[in-house]
Nucleic acid binder design. Sequence first.
DNA 1: AAATAAATTGCAAGCGCTTTAATCATGGCA
DNA 2: TGCCATGATTAAAGCGCTTGCAATTTATTT
Lengths: 344, 344
Amino acid sequence: MDKANSLSDLARHLGLSPATVSRALAQHDAIALKTRERVAKAARDLGYVPNRAAQALASGRSGFAGFLLPMRGRGLADPFLGEFVSNLTEGFAAKGVELLLSAVPREGSELRQLESLVTSGRVDGIVLSRIEQDDPRVALLRARGTPFVAHGRTGPEGTGYSWLDTDGRVAFAEAFELLYALGHRRFGLLSIDDRLMFRILREEGLHRAFAAKGDPALSLRHASCARYDPEGRARAIAQLLSGPERPTAVLAVADGLALELMAAAQAQGLSIPGDLSIIGFDNIPAGAHVTPGLTTFDACIADSATELAAMLLARIAAPDQPHITRLLTPQLVLRQSHGPAPQA
Amino acid sequence: MDKANSLSDLARHLGLSPATVSRALAQHDAIALKTRERVAKAARDLGYVPNRAAQALASGRSGFAGFLLPMRGRGLADPFLGEFVSNLTEGFAAKGVELLLSAVPREGSELRQLESLVTSGRVDGIVLSRIEQDDPRVALLRARGTPFVAHGRTGPEGTGYSWLDTDGRVAFAEAFELLYALGHRRFGLLSIDDRLMFRILREEGLHRAFAAKGDPALSLRHASCARYDPEGRARAIAQLLSGPERPTAVLAVADGLALELMAAAQAQGLSIPGDLSIIGFDNIPAGAHVTPGLTTFDACIADSATELAAMLLARIAAPDQPHITRLLTPQLVLRQSHGPAPQA
DNA sequence: AAATAAATTGCAAGCGCTTTAATCATGGCA
DNA sequence: TGCCATGATTAAAGCGCTTGCAATTTATTT
C-alpha cells in the first residue's frame, strides 16, 4: 500500500482532478455523494493528511483560533484557566478548528504578541478572557476587524463586539440580600486592585444593593490587593479581620481570595460561619473540599467556554452578522460558609 | 504611511526584489549589511508581518514546536505542567519558534492526534513528556523520522532518540539511605499503577538499595493506585497507614501523593515526622507551604524545559546529528517531614 | 429525439513566501 | 585596458492547496 502525500497523488490514484478531490474532502455538495465517499475511503487507505500550511495559504484560513495564555501569577496552574481551555478546545475541535495557545511571558508584551498573532495569519480569530475596563486588546481587534469574542465586558454596556459574561452585579446583590436577611449589618468586601471588569461589576452590585437599603446600621469595609501579590493579599485579609468592629460577613470577588480569608480567619480562632460568613465567586473545585464548604456562585466556566467557541466560529464564518452578547446569571451554590449574624 | 501586506509590497517600496527582501529579513549574510538594515527599517515602518502560512509552505517549516497537553486528571491545573510549559515557551521563543499546545481531550486519541500533528506539517518537532515504558509515541515519531525530544525515557537505556531525565533511581536510593541511617526499618512506598517510566525507575532505585542492605529487619509495604482515581488513592494511603506494623517511613513517587499521605496521616493523629517520615519527589510549590514542610527532591522542571527546548531546536536544525541524552541528578530538598525513626 | 436544465467534474490561476541557479556590478591585478 | 574573482542582487520555479468559471456528462422535459 503506497502513501499519498499530496492532493495530486491522491487525485491521480483516483483518476480525478485535484479540484474534485479537494472539494470532496471538504464535503462540498457540488460533488456527488458517491464520489465523496470514494475519495474519503481512498484518503483513509492511503493515509493522506492535508498540508495545513498549503490549506491556510490557499484559503486564507489558518484553522486556528487563538487564546493568550497568561503565564504570570499561577499561570497554567489556575484551575479556572484549565477548565476554560479544555472546553474551548472541545468546542472548536468539533468544527475542525484547533486552539492555538499562545503563551504570554510578561504582561507588557501582550498587545504586540496579539497583533503579530493576527497579522501573521496564524489564527482566524481570538478568544479574549480576563477583560479589563476599556481593554486595549478589544480596541486593537476591533480596529483590525479581526473576529474575536470576549469572556467579559470592557464596561457595563459593551457594544461593538461579541461577548459573554456572567452577571456579577446581580450575583453580589443577591449575596448581600441573603446575608442581610440573615441579620448581618457589618459587611466586608475582599477584592483586587486592578482594572479587571468582573471585579468592578461585582463590587458595583454589592455597593448598589448596599446603598439601596439606606440602613444607617450598615457598614462596609473594603480591602483590596494587587493581583499577583501574596503579601498584599495577606495584608488586605488582616485588615479585614482586625479590630472589634470587624465585618461579620465578607464577600470575596474570587474563590481564591475567599479560601485564603477563610484559612486566615480560622487561624486566628474565628469560627465560620459562627463568627464570620464568607461568600465567594467562581465555584472552583477547592471550595467544595474545605471545611466548611465555601458558599459561592457558579461561574459556569465550562458552559461559557463551549458557548464562546461557538460564538467565535460563527463570527469567523460570517463576520458581518450583528454581534452577539450573552449575560449568564450565576447560580448561588449554598454550602456552609455563611449563616446567621452572630449575636452582639 | 501606507502598509505593506506582502513581501512584494515591501520589495516594491524599497526598489528591491522579493528574493532580496526575503533574505534580508532572514539575516542571510549574502545580503549586504546595509541593505539588511534598510529592509528591516522599512518593514518596521510599514508594519510588515510575514504570512506564516506562506513561509511554512515555501520553506517546509511551520515555525511551531508541538506539545501534547493532557486534559485528563488535573489538566492544566497541574503545577508541574504549568512551569514546564512556561519554560518551554521561553526556550523556543528566543529562536522565533512558537509552542503549539495541542490539547488531548481523551487519552485514547493521543496517538492519532500526534500523527496528524506531524503529518499535517503543523509542527516541526515535538516535545514529549510523561514517557511510559515502551511508549508508543516514541515509536511512532522514530518511525516517521520526526524530530522530537523526550522528557523521560522509555526504558533504563533509552537509545535511538534524544531525551532528558532526572535520575529517580539514585534519588530514591539516596532517600532510602538517609532514612535507614535515621533508624527506619519499616518502609512504605506510595506509587501509581501505570506504565509511567519515572515511577518505575524510582521504585527500582528504592528496591535495589533495599535489597543491597540484606538486612532481615527491613520490611517494605508497597501501595499503589491508578493515576486519576481519588478513591483508589485514598485506599492506597489507608492501606499504607493501617495496622500496628505500619511503615515508619514512606517514599512517595510524587509530591502530590506525599501531600495527601501527610494529610491523611495527620488526620488519623499521627505526628510527622515523629511517627512517620515522608519523602516525596518533584518539589512542587505546595510542598513548601504545608506543615511540616515536605522533604523532597527537586526535579528541576524549569531547567529541564529550557534544556529540552534547546535540544529540540538543535534536532530540527540538524536531524542527522547523533542523539543527545542528559541525566540530571535531582537535589534533595531537606525540610521537616522526615526524622529519626520512632522508638519501639 | 432534440432541446434544455441540472448535476458533476476539470482547468488554471494564484495564495505569499523561499530558494536554486543565474545575472549583474565592482574592484583588483596583470 | 581587459579579464577574472568576489560580492550583491534577481528571475523564476515551485511549496500543496482552494476556488471561480468553464466544460462535460447525465437527467428531464416537450
